[in-house]
Amino acid sequence: MNRKYKITCALTVLTLALTGCASKGKVEKVKPNPLPKLVQAKTLVPVFSNSVASTDEADPLRLRMDVDQGVVFTVNPNGEVEAFNGKQRLWQKKVSKSGLTAGVEAADGIVVVGNAKGQLFALDQATGEQKWVVQLTGALLSPSLIQAGRVISVTNDGTVYANEVATGHQTWTYSLPNVQFSLRGMAAPVALDARNILIASSNAYIYVIDAISGVPKLQRRVAVSDGRSDIQRLIDIDGEPTVAGQFLITTSYQGQVTALDLATQQVIWSNDASSIQRPEVVGNGVFVAQTDGKIVAYEITSGQKLWENDQLLNRNLSNPVMLGQDLVVGDLDGVLHLLNPATGELVGRSKTSGEVRTLRVVDNQLYVSTRKGALSIWQNR
């Protein structure tokens, strides 16, 4: 069974696992919880929006916007990349006739995107002109990371690549262990510090690699699964790990939320939780959006549960982020929910178009990407 088939098979079974069976044998989706009523609800203010092509409902791609030097860069699944200064479009370039499945990463004067054929493109930030393109061995399904003069990318065949920012020249590769089954998707590489990067894998391990030399410095399992079947043992880390001081927080599908002490390289606590989203860490709080729609807060040093909100069950929640004083999470209907991070109480909402796939906060502004191709930036009132 080749890897592509295995991934497709796993995704199909996962979809069925998240549905319920009707009395006549038909399969029907679990209904999402209705939106709870709010009194004197807060709202967010939209400051930018752009519409691009949508992605397939079953496709887990989390295409995102990025910003560098005040310029916003957007990626279109149909193969285009655009740059905006405020609402003014600076340039628009058709990059790939085969579409784009990964991006955007913008830093060091370049914009990096990739496609399902394993092509990695670097564009000049100022003009949009192509600086280089390289062919990798597998599909690119998550954004790259620009770090220490390298473009770090992870392909869906489990290979980590480092290419020089200036030329695209390949400097090193690192092969992650192959797994029999995995979800379609891959966590993006994360900066640990000025030189080292974090890679999360489908086998529930995290790896620390020197971005310049490619030398591995740490390999640590952070989740376990006791399922009986291959599907029940799926334990991918699809959400990026979060670094908070000496702590590394990870989540996994059908696994755990885990806190690793980077100084001792030991797991200090672990709680059962299933999530494919990046956890948010603010102060002493670790915030996790689970696959069932629960939002749970943990104390970072002990793992003690601080609160749990189950009002958004089965609403396909995005990753949670902190915007000002509010915790924000998006859902399948394009609703942006605002929660009190101290209590978990829902305190407000705003609405965009399409299932929210990715949330980011940059310079106290919320960057939102949806499956329907609605790209928007919001801020607090």
Rank of each mutant, 00 (worst) to 15 (best):
P189S: 09
I206W: 07
K97P: 04
A187H: 05
E280S: 13
G109F: 06
Q266K: 12
L63C: 03
R220N: 11
N178E: 15
A200G: 02
G25L: 10
T242K: 15
I146V: 10
Q256Y: 14
R371T: 05
R221C: 03
T251S: 06
A263R: 13
V356P: 05
D236T: 11
L38C: 05
K97C: 00
K217M: 09
A297R: 12
A297W: 02
A102Y: 00
V281D: 04
N271V: 09
G324A: 06
V215Y: 12
T167R: 03
V243W: 01
G86E: 11
I268C: 06
A244L: 03
L262M: 06
F73C: 01
I199T: 06
L123F: 04
T155Q: 09
T301F: 10
S153P: 01
Y174V: 03
S252F: 02
N309Q: 14
V47M: 07
Q125V: 05
Q265Y: 08
V208N: 11
G168D: 05
S182E: 08
V361E: 01
K29S: 12
K37I: 10
A188S: 15
A53V: 06
Y5C: 00
K294S: 15
A53G: 12
N156K: 13
L35N: 15
F84A: 08
T343M: 09
T251C: 09
S182V: 00
V361H: 01
I212L: 15
D124R: 12
L14F: 03
T250I: 02
D238I: 12
V111I: 13
G344A: 12
K26T: 15
G114H: 07
A17M: 12
Y367S: 04
E28M: 08
S49Q: 13
V361C: 05
D230K: 03
P34Q: 04
E80L: 07
E345N: 13
A374N: 13
V215G: 05
V296D: 02
